[in-house]
Design a protein around this nucleic acid. Sequence first.
DNA 1: TTACATGCAAAGCATTTGCAGATAA
DNA 2: TTATCTGCAAATGCTTTGCATGTAA
Lengths: 150, 150
Amino acid sequence: MVNNSKVYDPFDAYSIALKKIEESGIIPTKQRRVLAKILFKKGNRHISAEDLYDEVKQEDRKISMATIYNTLKQFTILGLIREIVVDKNKSLYDTNNEPHYHLYIEDEGKVHDIPTNNINLDLPSVPACLNLHNIDVIVRVRSVKDNKKS
Amino acid sequence: MVNNSKVYDPFDAYSIALKKIEESGIIPTKQRRVLAKILFKKGNRHISAEDLYDEVKQEDRKISMATIYNTLKQFTILGLIREIVVDKNKSLYDTNNEPHYHLYIEDEGKVHDIPTNNINLDLPSVPACLNLHNIDVIVRVRSVKDNKKS
DNA sequence: TTACATGCAAAGCATTTGCAGATAA
DNA sequence: TTATCTGCAAATGCTTTGCATGTAA
């Protein structure tokens, strides 16, 4: 018996995530709960697999990279997080489930959210033969101090 | 002496590209001209490094992958093409220099252009401390026939 | 008990790099 | 001639996979 039975709190992202995990049929193992806590107990995040690995270590635990990747994939399929591909060589995982877009500061490798109400995106309707999955908007910027050519 | 001295045609994308290459100071070597021809003589394209490699081979030539990657990077820096990262493990290079956004059909791995006049994107103004580099809009869709969950 | 999950190490794969030889001007 | 470029092979770095072991219920 897993002892994580707290009362479901519809305003707590971690609580919501745990509920979705349980409902989905996958087992809420210790690793999955630890990762969910890191992901959802600290507000909206844009976190890489390696960041997660390090944060687990900071809690004097250890979860293998294989499990971290597996879990990130499962959480993505469950709709708990969203993968954002800002750079060829690194995926970030976004815990913000509200519609929003991203400001990517290239020289820092950091992502910030842009609330949707600041953006007005009128798309032509998607053809009936296609299922809309996602709309990624990434505004790519560089710090002014970093004035390398174009 | 490189024998590619045709009259500059301001309406031909290949001609424009060659001119920019010459003006930039990099040498318009045979490899660079072959790649520029493939990129710009066939209308707007979204092509991967491997696609390019294969198309060169179809012309009974051979250009090494290292050179292809080097050239794509240089052309990107020169502003001749734009790198679009649709998927974690593959970059595509876009020869369309007009402002536009992308429709990405995930199960096919294909990208189509969405003309800008079909989209109305009102962004909050970028803070003065940042240089706007690019805005990527990727509309991710799946074929209806491909009805895997979520 | 048993299906499912984890973790290690190895594999995979796109991309980059080091460097010797080739080439443009 | 000489700076620049090319191509091979090796290296890199993120991510995935195979498989033996562990675990939740």
